[in-house]
């Protein structure tokens, strides 16, 4: 009885007792969710256009952020370092396409997945060799990201919103909007979606597979850079960031592998729910740190009822 009370009643009583704290938790969850959504977006883009389950997205985030900070530390002005980092991501995209993807066209999914794990390991070693393994500070001020915090006082309480988090949320929204317009309106965007629908049909009407792949991996690189800046501003830049790739996987599964909308909604939902669960159920009842697995269990539960994720394309099997 007491157990049921702890699980079903007490958390909600806590929420009602301190609505300002609840708002703070929701906001934190939302910011985390935006980041998950961004990483998942990188995954979805690559999966849509090439059916590659790109495990390297997480390390691309770290690599982009490290390149930016590393260039700045070498004396390059921050505003010049940004386009230079983009150039590095373009070169990376071209190299990956040429060296890894092109020889592996038409291989089974799991082989391509393993290849992206290979890319991940290579980039970890390469990045640590060049930039060192220690934690670096993201150059927030040099990129004109405000660092103050805004304090609200709703319900006679106290909610603090950091301006860099606010910038992150707005920046992510702009980025996603731009991406949606690009995918739906531009010629290249249509080509990307065509490749996603049917490889051979797209090839036969003259869409170049390799060019589109480079573009898609470059876009994923840009998203990675944006994620890296935002996340780096919160937690510093180091290879520990790599674990966020694992946070994005359940987001992806929850939303559906092919759906851009699914990645965004899934990301926000998981960000908020895992924070709520951790604060109100995880810490008092389970000893904390439930964020490590909550998203996976949630995704697993959803998948049991919808095997293609919330927004994924219905899986039709033929024999």
């Amino acid at each position: 009885m007491e157990f049921l009370n702890d699980v079903l009643v007490q958390p909600f009583a806590d929420m009602a007792a301190a609505p300002d704290f609840l708002l703070q938790v929701l906001w934190e969850g939302l910011v985390g969710g935006v980041l998950y959504a961004l990483i998942a977006l990188g995954f979805v883009l690559i999966y849509k256009s090439s059916r590659i389950f790109n495990f390297a997205q997480g390390i691309m985030v770290v690599f982009a952020a490290l390149t930016l900070v590393g260039l700045y530390e070498k004396g390059v002005p921050a505003l010049l370092a940004l386009p230079l980092t983009l150039a590095v991501m373009l070169v990376l995209a071209m190299t990956i396409e040429r060296v890894v993807l092109r020889p592996l066209v038409n291989q089974p999914d799991i082989i391509l997945f393993m290849a992206t794990i290979g890319i991940t390991l290579f980039l970890i070693g390469f990045g640590e060799l060049i930039f060192g393994g220690e934690n670096k500070v993201m150059i927030t001020e040099q990129l004109f990201i405000p660092t103050g915090s805004i304090v609200f006082e709703p319900f006679g309480g106290f909610v603090s919103i950091e301006e860099k988090d606010l910038t992150a949320v707005i920046g992510a929204m702009v980025l996603v909007a731009a991406l949606l317009v690009f995918l739906n309106k531009s010629k290249i965007g249509r080509a990307i979606r065509a490749l996603g629908d049917d490889h051979q049909a797209a090839l036969s009407v003259g869409i170049s597979l390799s060019t589109i792949w480079v573009i898609v991996w470059f876009i994923a690189g840009v998203i990675a850079l944006a994620t890296g800046i935002v996340w780096g501003a919160r937690a510093g830049v180091s290879f520990a960031l790599e674990v966020i790739a694992f946070k994005a996987l359940p987001v992806l599964m929850l939303g559906g592998l092919e759906s851009v909308m699914g990645a965004i909604i899934g990301g926000l939902a998981i960000g908020i729910l895992e924070k709520l669960f951790e604060i109100y159920w995880g810490q008092p009842l389970l000893g904390g740190n439930t964020e490590a697995w909550f998203a996976y269990m949630l995704a697993l539960l959803v998948l049991l009822f919808r095997p293609q994720g919330l927004f994924g394309e219905k899986i039709i099997e033929r024999v």
Partner: peptide
């Protein structure tokens, strides 16, 4: 250690190809 990780990554890709 770093070279190690890098080489293993490259080898995995090479073997797969």
């Amino acid at each position: 250690e770093h070279l190690n990780i890098m080489i293993i990554g490259a080898l995995i890709i090479a073997f797969l190809i």
